[in-house]
Design a protein around this nucleic acid. Structure first.
Lengths: 369, 369
DNA sequence: CTGAAAGCGCTTACAG
DNA sequence: CTGAAAGCGCTTACAG
């Protein structure tokens, strides 16, 4: 094996090629030996520790390259106590909003040199608890958690009953409020008020709200925003214009609008509590021969990618997904570094994205301008 | 600390409660000491090794419980060489199909007692290469890879240039064919043929195909299936009924149908290369006042969750997502266990899901019956 | 059935 | 600036 001739592998046929034997991955000790230094020095070079002589550094780097050395992340983690992995616990990936948030999180984490390991909930309380407790997530340095069923108090309870110390957790979204965790929450009420104001600025007088329900989450503050906007404009609240829905799927929007039309309720605008509802509402309006935005304006919430592709393109609220991802990771980083900020409740900025389904000035207006 | 009175923590106020000091996680040695056995024995008990005396086993288990002991997964992995983590490299999570496949994979992996760490590609070749090479994925025992840009040959090249030994990789989908990897691929051609047959069985004579394009992937076999079905039915291929699209988004389906209508092309059925195209096509048909399925039948591909919620519900092909997830994980498991099967090219069964957009018998018919 | 010993591959004070 | 030594928490042959 030692002196076997090395032949360039013929990629087209692989015939007659002498394939190099797969080597064992080389270790830090191998590099140290080749470079004629101690393992400690190699370690320092690999971590870009400053106090290494330039000549030594170069020698080590050359040796590492020659041996195709890559540090074993497991050994490194065991020793340093950090894995560089963050567990994301999310209600699901099916939902476009969660999928986009997860993508944003993964991207941002990569920029921070971290991996994201994903756990998907599925509405089962038991499972949610056990994932939170589990050895499962114990690989991770910290947890990014979008609660589905558990309340703040329950989250605290579960976290405290874990073996070992309580892991660093950052909560995302409305749920889980009250838990003793840092949390990134959207400005749901203000953003909803801005959304409804966009409709009113376009001349709407009778704005339907589709999506309220009793469960914990963002439905309540969004309804507040709706109410506040009408109040500010001096428009009376009409109960028949507020439509609860069991889900926030496209079908809910379709059904709500179909019912409104069937009941003969008059309306000239729709504030949908998310984009899926808005898209469903638009489909129902189109079926009924109503033109958007001329007959009925529509605004959604979430700025899901698909909202760009409807005809006309959907006006909506970007609640600040990208910023939320960034802030959540920064928060977790700070906690991991032991520099947890005093303000543990963070609200990213939202923006109003006026596209083709509303009549007011089509500029993308920001929350604070 | 030793004899401090333990007080039940008052969850409602937390006032006056003596909070137990957060302890360091206990280790295997702690358990061994408390149980009066050696670390090796504790290790054996934790792994359910059979040859441990029942009495000893019980003593160890009691000690472990008393100390709230949980094995450190890092140390375990370093020693055993396995992390229990699998890297999933996917083009994206936005796309409903990929999101559902990822969910399926995560669920199945959990059942196998494995974590899934997700890497998202974004159309950048460089990034795709570096993710594949990177230390990034080197934490994982194996890789589940849905290629986006890289060809089979490129994948081989990148994998071989990695430091250390070539990692176990299972490919998912059409792309990357030809790489020296196990692969799970849908029966795209057969399934497409069945989809078109469903339309023909419902009386269709002029079936539009929306979605072909030149790029590598599943478009080609799906077009083959379309062609084969027509041929078998003795129906001539009409070029004007075959509509290429730049993307497989909803908008592509809308535009294709709008164009067909504008051009005055006659058709009575649509075979959309995926569900999103189908849904877009249905929207355009509705806008034009055409009834589905009476005027135009529609069938999609993927059985995305949303296809249940369109009105009428979309008939489609379930290519076998759940089975594919299962098979891919089994394949990877076999490779990790050193028992790689001789047949490394695996095709899950598809099924025809006849719902409301087609006219033939509405039974869910399976591929092999 | 149980234990003593070596070691997975790295990092981290601590001397020098 | 560099190295010797200890150790992260576990598992794995190997004796007994």
């Amino acid at each position: 094996m030692g002196n076997a001739p090395l032949t360039i592998i013929d990629l087209t046929t692989k015939k007659g090629a002498i394939v190099a034997p797969r080597r064992q991955p080389s270790t830090l000790r191998d590099v140290a030996r080749l470079a004629g230094v101690s393992p400690a020095t190699v370690s320092n070079v690999m971590q870009n520790h400053p106090r290494v002589a330039d000549a030594t550094r170069k020698r080590v780097q050359d040796a590492a390259r020659a041996l195709q050395y890559e540090p074993n992340p497991l050994a490194r983690s065991l020793r340093s106590g950090r894995t560089g992995t963050i567990a994301l616990i999310t209600p699901g990936l099916q939902n476009a909003y969660f999928a986009e948030l997860a993508t944003e999180l993964i991207r941002t984490a990569n920029a921070y040199n971290r991996r994201i390991s994903v756990e998907v909930l599925d509405g089962d309380r038991q499972r949610e608890e056990s994932i939170l407790t589990g050895t499962w997530t114990s690989f991770a340095d910290g947890i990014l958690y979008i609660p589905q069923k558990l309340t703040g108090r329950e989250i605290d309870y579960v976290l405290d009953s874990r073996a070992g110390r309580r892991p660093p957790v950052v909560l995302l979204g409305e749920r889980g409020a009250g838990a003793d965790c840092a949390q990134v929450t959207y400005r749901n009420s203000d953003a909803s008020q801005a959304a409804v104001k966009l409709l009113l600025d376009g001349g709407a007088k009778r704005v339907v709200a589709i999506g309220p329900h009793e469960r914990a989450g963002s439905a309540t503050p969004r309804l507040e925003g709706y109410t506040a906007a009408l109040k500010q404009a001096g428009i009376p609240l009409r109960p028949e214009l507020i439509r609860e829905t069991p889900t926030w799927h496209r079908s809910a929007g379709m059904e709500a609008v179909s019912e409104l039309l069937a009941e003969g309720v008059e309306f000239d605008a729709v504030f949908a509590f998310n984009d899926m509802i808005a898209l469903g509402a638009m489909a129902a309006l189109a079926n009924a021969g109503l033109r958007v935005p001329d007959d009925v304006q529509v605004v959604g919430f979430d700025d899901v990618e698909e909202s760009n592709f409807s005809v006309p393109a959907l006006s909506t609220i970007d609640p600040g997904k990208a910023e939320a991802a960034q802030l959540a990771l920064e928060l977790l980083d700070a906690i991991l570094a032991g520099t947890e900020p005093t303000n543990r409740q963070i609200f990213p900025d939202f923006s109003v994205v006026a596209r083709g389904t509303t009549l007011a000035s089509p500029n993308r207006s920001h929350a604070h301008d």
